[in-house]
Simulated assay, not measured.
Amino acid sequence: MGRLLAGLLVTCLALTLGACATRSGEWGDEEYTIASGGSTGVYFAYGTAVADAVSSARTVDLVAEQTAGSVDNLLRVSAGEALLGFAQGDAAADAVAGTGAFAEPQDVTAVARLYDEYLQVVVRGDSPVHDLADLAGMTVSLGAENSGVNVIAGRVLDAAGVDAASIRDPQLDLGASIAAMAEGEIDGFFWVGGLPTPGIAQLARTADVRLLPIEQEWVNEVNDRYSHAYRPADVPAGTYGLAAAVTTLAVPNYLVTAGSTPAGVVRDVLATLFDARTALAQQVPAAALLDRRSAIFTGPVPLHPGAQEYYRDLRG
C-alpha cells in the first residue's frame, strides 16, 4: 500500500508540473544523483522525493543515493560524484573553509536552506544513563565515519567535558544504530536529523526510548569554538512518545551543489522544489519547512549563482 501511495504521489507531481515545466538546455543525458544519507533518515526520504519530482517535471534521470551523511555528501558533490547533496550547516561551513574533516576547501555552494535538524541522543527508557557524563564506559554510536553526526557528537561531548575516548564507539550509521539498540547491543546512539526521524519513530513504536538533554551552555561553547551554526532548541513533548520536551541544539540543513554546476540546472531544481513543496510534504513533512524568505540564508556557504538568479527573479 505504501508503494502504491508513493507511486500515486509521483504521478500527481508529474500531472501537476509536467504540463508547464521545461528543463534548461544545460542538463545532459546521464544519470544524476542526490547524495542522501542512510535509508532510515530524513535525508534519504527527502532526496528520494526530490529526485522523483525533478525527474518527472524536467524529464531527467535523477536518483537518490545512500551515503554516510553530511561529510560524505559534501566530498561527493565537490568531486563531481553527485549533482546535489544534503549537508548540515556546520559541516558545509567546514567544507568551504577546508577545516575539520576537510583537508582543503571544497567546491561547494548552497542551493537552499531547507530546514533545521536536531541533535538526538537516544537511550532506552530504562537506561541508567540520564546525562552525557553517564556515557563514559558505555557502548554508544557517535555516528558513522564521514557523517555530520560524528562532527557534532565530538564537539558537544567536548563542550560537556566528556572524553569521547572513554566511550566505546562502534561508528554505526542510523539504520545500524537502531538495529543494535533493538537487539540490546549498544547503550545509545547520537543522531542529527529532522523531527520526527522515521527510523527512530519506528523504534519508539516497539521500544521505550528517551533523549538525553543538551544544555544551552554547551551549545554556546560549541558556537564560540566553531562556526556559530547552532542554536538552542527543544524536541517537543510527544515526539517519539516523550512525556516532556527535551533541550537540545539545532543546526540548519542545506541542499548543496558544486560551484561548477550549470546555473540553469540549479534554477530548474529550485523551481521544482518550490512548485512541488505541498506534494513533497505529503511524503516528507520537513519539505513543508522550505521557505523563500529563509532559503537564502546559507552563510558562510555562498549561494550558487543559479540560486542567486532564481531568488532575485522571485523578488523582481
Rank of each mutant, 00 (worst) to 15 (best):
G194N: 13
W218L: 04
A286P: 00
T248F: 03
A276N: 09
L132G: 06
V42Q: 07
T11S: 14
E215D: 13
N150W: 09
A53D: 01
A160S: 06
S147W: 05
G69I: 01
V121A: 02
S24M: 09
P105T: 00
A97R: 13
V111K: 05
L114I: 03
I167G: 06
V50D: 04
E145N: 15
R315A: 11
D94C: 08
Y226V: 05
A295G: 03
T248Y: 03
Q88E: 15
G47R: 09
G259A: 10
S141P: 02
E309T: 05
Y118H: 15
H228C: 09
R312E: 14
A179P: 00
L174S: 07
G25A: 13
A245N: 09
S36G: 07
A307C: 04
A133C: 02
P236D: 02
A19E: 15
Q282G: 14
L62R: 04
F189V: 00
R168K: 06
R293P: 00
P196E: 15
E221W: 01
Q106G: 03
G241R: 13
Q171S: 15
S70D: 12
D61E: 12
A103N: 10
P262C: 15
L132D: 02
L5K: 14
V63D: 06
V42W: 05
S166F: 00
Y115E: 14
A276R: 14
I167T: 06
I152M: 15
D158I: 02
P236T: 15
A93Q: 10
A14G: 14
P262G: 15
R205A: 12
G143M: 08
T11Q: 14
P252L: 11
S70F: 03
